[in-house]
């Protein structure tokens, strides 16, 4: 009764977001992923393996299609490198490329780099809740280097798994929607196994990128070796 109700709710919202992130990332995660990219012209599938520790470090290796096999990505904090076996080169992604599309998907390099820093970069507020879900508004911290004006995240109760994230620009125009669906048991937890990114910009409207998580193991020890530049080439094979 003493606390102002709004503060209590903000705290509660922050708690929820933190939990959602933990549920999504785990302490560490090893995932097998299929990515389906649909444009008005074509549909394309990629497969990859991902190794991550929290949200700070991750290592990705492309396994399909054959011609891209062995392309690896390493992300440590805010820096990103890639290795391309065909050219036998490790390339550091320059700042000016960070907002370019990652592998032609509707995700940018930057999305990968700062993918799960929502709890760090945003202040959360519960907009509404029903018996089955919360709707949480996320406003960027004044200091946070994020382009969005606001996010609205739907979170399923009681598992605290994300349902959708709507990305708005500063003027409140919806720019893209990320949907998390098909929750099923993966590894030790319930997990949304299908993520769909739907750009809403005029130029890309109608495209979509689908991420399907086919296998997942959480909270296992991952060899630190994965998170070094040497690994890019070494684990490319």
């Amino acid at each position: 009764m003493v606390f102002p109700p709004r503060l209590a709710r903000a705290d509660e919202a922050a708690e929820i977001i933190k939990k959602v992130e933990d549920n999504l990332n785990g302490r560490s995660a090893v995932l097998k992923i299929a990515m389906i990219i649909k444009t008005s012209r074509a549909t394309r599938t990629m497969k990859m393996e991902s190794f991550s520790v929290g949200s700070e470090k991750s290592f990705i290796k492309i396994t399909y299609p054959g011609k891209d096999y062995g392309i690896t990505f390493l992300k440590i904090n805010d820096a990103m490198w890639q290795y391309v076996p065909r050219i036998e080169k490790i390339i550091k992604i320059p700042a000016s490329m960070m907002l370019q599309s990652w592998m032609g998907t509707d995700f940018s390099n930057d999305d990968l780099v700062r993918e799960s820093s929502i709890s760090r970069d945003y202040t959360a507020k519960i907009l509404s809740q029903s018996d089955t879900a919360y709707e949480i508004e996320l406003l960027p911290q004044p200091e946070a280097a994020v382009v969005w004006g606001k996010l609205v995240m739907g979170v399923a109760k009681p598992e605290l798994l994300p349902q959708s994230v709507r990305y708005y620009d500063e003027e409140g125009v919806l720019v893209r929607i990320l949907e998390y669906t098909e929750v099923k048991r993966l590894g030790d937890r319930l997990y949304p196994s299908r993520w769909v990114m739907l750009p809403q910009d005029k130029e890309k409207y109608g495209n979509q990128t689908i991420i399907e998580i086919t296998e997942a193991t959480f909270d296992v020890e991952i060899d630190e070796e994965y998170f070094s530049k040497r690994a890019l080439q070494r684990f490319s094979e």
């Binding site: 444009t39 074509a42 890639q82 391309v84 065909r86 050219i87 036998e88 080169k89 032609g104």
Partner: peptide, 16 residues
Amino acid sequence: VAFVGTGADYSFSADT
């Protein structure tokens, strides 16, 4: 010189 880019089908494209 190596190049890394995006193909017309958005696929990954690189060569030496």
